[in-house]
């Protein structure tokens, strides 16, 4: 029994090492989350709160937008290739991602706020916080959708999406955390300069995705 278990464990380790991208994906998630929290270090409770919120958002966005191309395999894929223009396909996926992340923001923020409450001394506007969350989540969802589109073309699966997407999400996460911090300081979420940056990043990414997608979608 024990010998068999040890053998299986050894086999797992060997296979994992052979598929290094899966280990890399784990490492990438760890680095990304730690780095986000590190950015908030030493700036007091509000920043820690904002960083925690965005770590939660990060994982939710990934599990939401990271599955957008799960169905496009085999016959479905061939049908879609024949039926719709690739730019329309990615455009539709991006629109859906925006709605999905909006709904997800409500859920994540609701649960987060219910359990953790507001940070001390915050100038709280729930609506502004939700708005900031949705805006940042939308911006990141475009990136996740695009790298998922690339990753789904390989046989390596969702691990590759994490490896490709997380590095690009770090700056967006930092921006989003700062926007949440601004909101906690009492700024309206649309007047924060990070609002403009995140919005243009999201739109820019969407445009890039629409331009590049026809290219990766061909078989």
């Amino acid at each position: 029994m024990l010998a068999q278990a040890l053998h299986i464990a050894r086999l797992e380790a060997l296979l994992a090492l052979r598929k290094a991208h899966q280990l890399a994906a784990i490492a990438m998630f760890a680095v990304c989350a730690v780095y986000l929290v590190y950015q908030a270090d030493g700036f007091g409770q509000q920043n820690a709160w904002a960083a925690q919120l965005w770590v939660v958002y990060l994982f939710s966005i990934f599990s939401a937008a990271g599955r957008l191309f799960d169905r496009e395999q085999g016959p479905t894929r061939r049908y879609l290739q024949w039926a719709v223009h690739p730019s329309a396909l990615i455009g539709g996926k991006l629109l859906y991602a925006a709605v999905l992340t909006g709904a997800m923001t409500l859920l994540v923020f609701g649960a987060f706020y219910l359990l953790l409450g507001a940070p001390e001394g915050a100038n709280l506007s729930l609506l502004a916080l939700i708005g900031a969350g949705w805006w940042g989540a939308f911006s990141m969802a475009t990136t996740v959708t695009t790298v998922t589109a690339i990753a789904s073309q390989t046989r390596a699966g969702p691990a590759i999406a994490a490896v490709l997407g997380l590095p690009l999400l770090i700056p967006q996460l930092i921006l989003a955390t700062r926007m949440t911090r601004d909101v906690l300081d009492g700024l309206a979420w649309t007047t924060s300069e990070h609002f403009v940056f995140l919005g243009s990043l999201g739109l820019g990414t969407a445009v890039l995705a629409i331009l590049l997608f026809p290219y990766i979608w061909r078989s």
């Binding site: 598929k19 991208h21 890399a24 390989t154 390596a156 590759i160 490896v163 690009l168 990766i216």
Partner: peptide
């Protein structure tokens, strides 16, 4: 990290002929 990701994408997908395009 981004270029590490790029390297991993190339390595993980091996000699699939779609790799150059992706």
């Amino acid at each position: 990290l981004v270029y590490t990701g790029y390297r991993i994408l190339r390595a993980a997908t091996g000699d699939d002929d779609r790799v150059p395009r992706l």
